[in-house]
Design a protein around this nucleic acid. Structure first.
Lengths: 148, 148
DNA sequence: CTCTATCTTGTAATCATTACAACTTTAAAA
DNA sequence: TTTTAAAGTTGTAATGATTACAAGATAGAG
């Protein structure tokens, strides 16, 4: 997890990914995709917007919503669905699971421990494209606070 | 999955579960919990409300929200977090995974194939309480429609 | 340079969820 | 039984995320 390759990804590389997906590498798209690749905090729409807005005063939150939708559709980004939380986004595509602290809401990356690929449910008529594994519990920091 | 034991669960049994959790078995709570135990469709708040309202004309949607929150807190029900969908609820507590058809949005139950218990991430300082495994893809019915 | 499709933007609407305060019910005490 | 307090329910109003829509800006093709 958190190899340098994603944090160090260049604008040129991001641009290449967008073009490959048939999307124009606009400054807004590069900014949103870059934000997701350069952070590991699984941000909400609002977090992304707040981080980018100071550098791009004309950025609209609608644009962030639009861009996240097309990035998800293109498979350049994935969205997480977390209990009692807004939609969150993840720009790191290597297979990994998530741990959500039910106390502070932070999302941690975990190695994906399934050795085989996706399981097959074809006998049930279900064709699996992807899986999402989430663990819920408490992180060390929150348990420390509770102990006080 | 879908053993008869849950579909056939009696009001007395539901009442017992509520009392055991320290909750009064009000008619509203019995109705909401019963609806979740008698169906396998992982309903939304709105679906539950719509199913119960005809029999209980004074039922309030706020009550359904309140009840679902306390049932979740009591561990009598679990909530699912599904991409691009409202919160959904599941009254069947035996360990199982979910398959979500990204075409029709239906949620199917799947056997949980992990032989061991929950994995441990204590070395990372993370204490796991529960896991949620979701598979996304297309069901037979939707693939049939697309083929046309 | 012009045209057209693509992309961005802001405003207004929608819709799920929550806050809150009043009202009702229940269980237990007196 | 009556009283009382806690627990539970209800409706309305507020909140806040997300989407719809229409106008404006941009960029690549010809």
């Amino acid at each position: 997890m958190q190899s340098q390759q994603d944090k160090d990804v260049t604008t040129m590389e991001l641009s290449r990914r967008l073009l490959e997906a048939g999307l124009r590498p606009s400054v807004q798209r590069l900014a949103v995709l870059g934000d997701l690749c350069h952070h590991y905090d699984h941000p909400t729409v609002d977090t992304i917007y707040s981080r980018l807005q100071p550098q791009m005063p004309t950025l609209s939150k609608t644009t962030v919503y639009n861009i996240l939708r097309v990035l998800c559709e293109a498979g350049l980004v994935r969205s997480l669905n977390i209990e009692y939380a807004n939609q969150r986004f993840d720009g790191h595509l290597e297979p990994h699971d998530h741990f959500i602290c039910t106390c502070c809401g932070r999302v941690y990356d975990l190695p994906h421990d399934r050795t085989a690929g996706l399981p097959s449910f074809e006998d049930l008529g279900l064709h699996v494209d992807r899986e999402e594994v989430s663990y819920y519990g408490s992180c060390r920091e929150c348990r420390g606070k509770q102990a006080r």
